[in-house]
Design a protein around this nucleic acid. Structure first.
Length: 868
RNA sequence: GGGCGCGUAGCUCAGUUGGUUAGAGCACCUCGUUUACACCGAGGGGGUCCGGGGUUCGAGUCCCUGCGCGCCCACCA
């Protein structure tokens, strides 16, 4: 049964994807033998769809898992999805908006019902896509952060942390998004450098003696000013003790106070204090017991306290205030000013700092445990250059605001008493207040930050808080593979919560992969319209080719720039695999062998000794690169081995040996043994084509369950002999190409060999280079005609017509190169410091290298003069 | 204001601990379709490794510095 002529992945990929799921071969068994290797997938948004970043991430994760599984580990690849609180809620709200409905109009219960409907509708898309791209997950263990089981884990985690004093409720200044209408954690706020404006505003003193000039970037907040401050060491303002200023526009009297907050070097050295709208001012306000006047509300509009500006959007109010101040001639100066503006990560709205009562996680004690775990090596970053960034963040961590004023998420398990105002935190809804016994208790309306539940992922997915066999077997997980963009959001939180609640690290190793950018190095985003749908390119190039291309591009350090050229190259590689298999199968049929992959026999020929050596060397490098998460190296090693060793040389030589009707000869066994090993080695990167070919060669079990090739003995002598033979063949081809001779014309000549070079197999050289050679030992007595020389042999071809100009050109270039190299070596070898300082080995190799060049130079010169 | 990273062939990038003539893929040039693959084969051209110092017998690789670019963190007006 012959293979189709070309690699057409569409013909078989979805079939294998389905087969892998249906046969359940990736089902994890805690009782199975072998070292345990477990990994929980970074849960994608339940309503999301696969993007190119996922494609890279899943290629890498799946390769890691498949490699460990084939290496004999008891593996668990746990899949699942995240409810993605704010993202999903916004999505559904947007769809409601299209119907002309707001969530408030629907009410909480009805809205939640709508989101669940949405989840049911789109929630399977991403997991179906994961199956389609070949993720070798245990689908029986699929998890969802908002499922009843995981919700129980969230509840338990919250209560335990609360009981340990690690969760508290308090009133602080938080980041507030007026559009999403919720508090945000610090991480959900993006700082964007912007060219803003600094307005210098005059605040008259009450006594009319003078005015103070205050600089601000946010004039609208002045309506809430409750003081002006100057630095106590600032000589310019010593006389202001006890003075009062009049707040323009509001005509409110505000005191002038002395506080270190005011920097004498900034502007005029006078700063306005708005405790309700600025974190620094809030602190200063506390120190001086200043009143808070909230002039901006949760929806971004001015409050009643803003007097004539009440009800205006905060930015509209700003413009009006500037206009009004100008009319009053209270603007002293307007200058451009560079500042970082804070925006909501989700919707891009400018975040408003507001004082608000929220729930927080006390992070310092948790971070201490994490720092200890990383410092002691219980968690290892790979690549390790993230250590410093990570430590810096962990060491300066601030408390984590975990309450969100949303409706989609885990409801906070706290009940407020309407009588005594106290809070009861409990695992189940209490019938009465635990403080006063009142039955008038009501659950806190807020939900938890979506990252709170994701932070429990490595153990909540394994059955925690119950003591399950899965949890005992697979926790801590072995490896976390994720993008560096969610290092703090997710990885750091898992570490904190895992160490606190499980008493052990959530994973032993963290591999941070790179991000995929568009061809112009821009981040891919839907709004920019530069996203690439991986399903489209999988269809076009083949999923295996996309996996290979992405992994080969993903060298740690820099982000990947997306390029179709790479994908096309990878597809061509897959096509090469396909056609090599086709060649082998065709010849098997001719030799009377049924498709099969027998064990390799013993190496008898040079090419067998050589390919075994190369295979073992490649297996060694590939296993090491996989262990170090150097996936681009894995791809490159396998590419080189397969295309340039196996196809270009090994198969070409074997083609000369295989005879029709021969049956299963030793040549065949060796060829098939190497091919089988290659398929298995390539499988973690390219699961589909390898599975397809595996079966085309008569296998019935999945290749995913076959053994991963382990390194074996190498054969330096065989590699040297093979290299020599390749040089001889190449030399002949070069001579032919130099003279523009027909490929079919058999050229006659003499091969002069020295030393060990004599036992080359002449017939192989003759066939692969289309030559007819006499072979002699020793150096050529004279070098006439078309010659190519190396230290170990001289090849002289009798050409029908030697183009002397071509020969001279080639030789002149060679001679120049050699002279330069020799001069280079001479310079070093005449350097006393080098001779005394460098290791003997280095000096020796330099000497012998020089001797080789000199010998070769002699040859070239002789050949050149023989042309005269 | 801190921190990280990048600058190597026309393009996209490799280049673990400093040590043969710095590599790959794509693109380019020449030749080649009789038996796996034109998604191919054979051969070839192409690089002052961003600039400047330094350490060293020896630097693409280590140190300092300048230029250019990117990212992350950060409550100063």
């Amino acid at each position: 049964m012959e293979l189709e002529k070309a690699y057409e992945p569409q013909r078989f990929e979805s079939r294998w994807a389905q087969w892998w799921v249906e046969t359940g071969i990736f089902h994890a068994d805690p009782k199975a033998p072998g070292p345990r290797f477990s990994l929980a997938v970074p849960p994608p948004n339940v309503t999301g769809s696969l993007h190119i970043g996922h494609m890279l991430e899943h290629s890498v994760i799946d390769a890691a898992i498949r490699w460990r599984r084939m290496s004999g580990d008891n593996t668990l690849f746990l899949p699942g999805v995240d409810h993605a609180g704010i993202a999903t809620q916004l999505l559904v709200e947007r769809s409601l908006a299209a119907e002309g409905v707001t969530r408030e109009q629907l009410g909480r219960a009805e809205f939640e019902k709508r989101v669940w409907q949405w989840k049911d509708k789109y929630g399977h898309r991403i997991t179906e896509q994961m199956k389609r791209i070949g993720d070798s997950c245990d689908w029986s263990r699929e998890r969802f952060t908002l499922s009843p089981e995981l919700s129980r884990a969230v509840l338990e985690a919250f209560v335990r942390l609360y009981e340990r004093g690690l969760i508290y409720r308090g009133t602080y200044m938080v980041n507030w998004c007026p559009t999403c209408h919720t508090a945000l954690s610090d991480l959900e706020v993006k700082h964007e450098d912007t060219q803003g404006t600094l307005w210098h505003i005059r605040y008259p003193l009450k006594d009319g003696s003078r005015h103070l000039v205050v600089a601000t970037t946010r004039p609208e907040t002045m309506l809430g000013d409750t003081a002006l401050a100057v630095n106590p060491s600032d000589d310019r303002y010593r006389d202001l003790t006890g003075k009062t200023a009049v707040l323009p526009l509001m005509n409110r009297e505000i005191p002038v106070i002395f506080d270190e907050l005011a920097d004498p070097k900034f502007g005029t050295g006078v700063v306005k204090l708005t405790p309700a709208h600025d974190p620094n001012d809030l602190e200063a306000g506390k120190r001086h017991k200043l009143p808070h006047i909230k002039v901006i509300s949760e929806n971004g509009r001015m409050t009643d306290a803003a007097g004539p500006y009440a009800g205006l959007d905060r930015f509209v109010a700003r413009r009006q205030i500037i206009g009004d101040l100008e009319k009053l001639e209270l603007i002293e100066k307007i200058e451009p000013y560079a500042l970082a503006i804070s925006k909501c990560d989700r919707c891009g709205t400018v975040v408003e700092p507001l004082v608000s009562t929220q729930w927080f996680v006390k992070t310092k004690p948790l971070a201490a445990k994490v720092l200890e775990a990383v410092h002691s090596g219980r968690i290892v970053f790979e690549p390790e250059n993230w250590n410093k960034t990570f430590f810096n963040w962990m060491e300066n961590i601030r408390d984590w605001c975990i309450s969100r004023q949303l409706w989609w998420g885990h409801r906070i398990p706290a009940w407020h008493c309407k009588d005594c105002q106290e809070i009861t935190v409990a695992r189940e809804a209490p019938s009465k207040c635990s403080h006063c016994g009142s039955a008038r208790v009501e659950q806190d309306p807020d939900v938890l930050d979506t990252w709170f539940s994701s932070g429990l992922w490595p153990f909540s997915t394994l059955g925690w808080p119950d003591d399950t066999e899965d949890l005992r077997t697979y926790y801590p997980t072995s490896l976390l593979i994720t993008g560096y963009d969610i290092l703090f959001f997710w990885a750091a939180r898992m570490m904190m919560l895992g160490l606190e609640l499980m008493g052990d690290v959530p994973f032993r190793q963290v591999h941070l992969h790179t991000l995929v950018r568009d061809p112009y190095r821009q981040k891919m985003s839907k709004t920019k319209g530069n996203v690439v749908d991986p399903l489209d390119i999988n269809e076009k190039f083949g999923t295996d080719a996309v996996r290979l291309a992405l992994m080969m591009a993903a060298a740690p350090g820099t982000d990947i720039t997306y390029s179709e050229d790479r994908l096309a190259a990878a597809r061509q590689f897959a096509n090469k695999m396909w056609n090599a298999a086709r060649l082998i199968l065709m010849n098997m049929e001719a030799s009377g062998i049924a498709p099969s992959l027998p064990e390799a026999g013993t190496a008898e020929t040079l090419e067998d000794r050589w390919i075994f050596s190369r295979l073992n060397r490649t297996a060694e490098s590939v296993n090491r690169a996989l262990a170090q998460h150097r996936y681009h190296e894995v791809g490159e090693l396998l590419w080189q081995f397969f295309w340039h060793d196996f196809c270009d040389w090994y198969l070409e030589i074997k083609k000369l040996r295989l005879a029709p009707g021969s049956g299963l000869t030793n040549d065949w066994r060796n060829l098939l043994g190497v091919f089988s090993a290659y398929l298995r080695m390539q499988h973690p990167i390219m699961p589909f084509i390898t599975e397809e070919l595996w079966h085309r060669f008569g296998q019935t079990q999945s290749i995913a369950l076959a053994a991963y090739p382990q390194p074996g003995a190498t054969d330096a002598a065989a590699e040297h002999e093979m290299a020599l033979m390749q040089e001889m063949i190449t030399a002949a081809r070069k001579l032919r190409a130099d003279h523009g001779l027909d490929k079919k014309l058999v050229l006659e000549g003499v091969l002069f060999c020295r030393n060990g070079a004599t036992n080359v197999e002449l017939s192989v050289i003759e066939k692969l280079a289309t030559v007819k050679l006499d072979i002699r030992t020793g150096a050529a007595p004279e070098l006439q005609g078309a010659v190519r020389s190396t230290p170990e042999f001289d090849l002289v071809l009798h050409l029908p017509e030697v183009d002397l100009d071509v020969q001279r050109g080639r030789l002149t270039k060679e001679i120049e190169q050699l002279e330069k190299l020799i001069a280079d070596k001479d310079r070093q070898l005449s350097n006393e410091k080098f001779l005394s300082g460098a290791p003997a080995q280095v000096v020796e190799s330099l000497r012998s290298k020089r001797a080789e060049y000199v010998a070769q130079l002699e040859k070239s010169r002789t050949a050149f003069s023989s042309l005269q």
